[in-house]
Amino acid sequence: MAIVVKRPKLNIFERMYLPAIAKGLLITLSHAIKRLRGQTKVTMQYPEEKWDSELPDYYRGAPTLVKDEQGRERCVSCQLCEFICPPRAITITPGEIPSGDTWAKVEKRPEEFEIDMIRCIYCGMCEEVCPEQAIFLRKDYAITGTTRAEMVHDKEKLYEIGGVREGLVNKWNELK
């Protein structure tokens, strides 16, 4: 069945076209005036203006390693994050903690821990899977480098960004 579309009937002013043009011009001009007065939200001027203070707590930035209050590496190099990582950005070389060490009972720690930031997709699965709460996604988002090698965060760099996280599970502190 054919559908009859009702065309709106134009009155004399609309048919003359010029009043409609004037109306259109006024609309755009009002936008310009609002913009000049700063009443319009516009694109953020990025390097000068930043959104950092408004980043939500759940923001997923660069994954990092954290230490606990006593300065112990939380990571026990179980390699779960390495296995879960969808783009396989994480490479861990596990190592043993020597028997003389204060935390010798933890037994393992990462010898080397590398996250390839070219590969990382900021999914946060490493953080989710970590049984030791050692890896966290921080709010750093501007990860840049001039070479591929520079874009691989090693253990030192990861701890540098990660810092110390307190008030989490501290199962290794009490004698068991």
């Binding site: 001009l29 936008h31 310009a32 913009r35 516009v42 001027q45």
Partner: peptide, 13 residues
């Protein structure tokens, strides 16, 4: 620049 003003943008600055 003027079209940017009319369209709530910034334009080349």
């Amino acid at each position: 620049r003027f079209s940017a003003l009319l369209q709530d943008r910034v334009g080349p600055n």
